[in-house]
Design a protein around this nucleic acid. Structure first.
Lengths: 156, 156
DNA sequence: GCTAAAACTTAGACTCGTCTAACTTAGGTA
DNA sequence: TACCTAAGTTAGACGAGTCTAAGTTTTAGC
């Protein structure tokens, strides 16, 4: 346990960070939250299209654990953002932009899950944590995850 | 690059997850979002108390990158939640519950940052990503991070 | 091919976290 | 000590994301 002391130590010396840098960090997190809804929806829509050939609000609601009016409202926001194509009472499809975003998100999701699994975390926890973590992983960090994954795979 | 194929593969076989499990995951993320504000505030308040002996709204606003009325409103929410103690126009202090939460958050924050650094990520990115990631890291995952950290430290 | 049930939408309310504008209080200094 | 300025608060608006209740459309079974 004493090996951990090197970073536990910081507890007692609280480094003073530049306030603007800190503020920028929080702003980044707030921005990530704004795109989270869109990312979760397109990711799920892509999944359903692959699985079923189409994405229906009823199933999106079920998987997201929300009620259908919520889905209706959010889908129209997605439509306004140019990510989905859709007519009233019909299934939902992705635009090119939506498909592109979905692909990037799914790839990122898979990397995060695979990375967590490589640390010995159980599948359920890995999936659950990845859902929250993925939206806050920068390209740099994603690459580091991939790199570490490669190491661990060649290692065994 | 071909080593990566094993998890890139999944792209083409989209495993069907139980809808309820997926819904539960999203619910967990939504719950995490609700406590995020509280966690960020108490963490920062603890930091400022250590640094300055007290936490002033003006500095909280600056560090969080928000305006002071936002701080006023959120502090009263924290007060209602029993995390801070405070009188009008005076500095902000933590209750026992608040201090406890702050300590847990700061420890988690340090672990996440240290872990990201151990992957070779630069300090600025590590800090920025940790800010978002930390709120979504379960105890299980946190332990896995600590374990990996220990490995990497004994490894070099 | 009608009709009942399931799927979907609309309307309207609520909370959270943010903002601006305008007001009040506290504190240092002339 | 009186006053100016910086700090803090109040009031009120707004968007996002959720909900319930009530309506409309689609669809599937008889």
């Amino acid at each position: 346990m004493s090996k951990l002391q090197s970073y536990e130590r910081e507890a007692f010396e609280t480094v003073e960070r530049a306030p603007e840098a800190q503020a920028k960090g929080f702003a980044t997190v707030r921005r990530a939250h704004e795109s989270e809804m869109a990312e979760d929806y397109v990711e799920l829509i892509a999944e359903l299209i692959e699985l079923r050939g189409e994405a229906r609000p009823v199933e999106i609601a079920e998987r997201l654990g929300v009620k259908s009016p919520t889905v209706t409202k959010n889908i129209s926001r997605l439509k306004a953002a140019g990510l989905v194509r859709r007519e009233r009472y019909r299934a939902i499809f992705l635009t090119d932009a939506g498909r592109e975003l979905a692909e990037a998100c799914r790839r990122r999701h898979r990397v995060v899950v695979a990375f967590l699994l490589s640390l010995g975390i159980d599948e359920e926890t890995a999936e659950r944590d990845a859902e929250g973590i993925e939206h806050h992983v920068s390209t740099t960090t994603l690459e580091a995850f991939e790199h570490a994954l490669l190491q661990s795979q060649s290692g065994k």
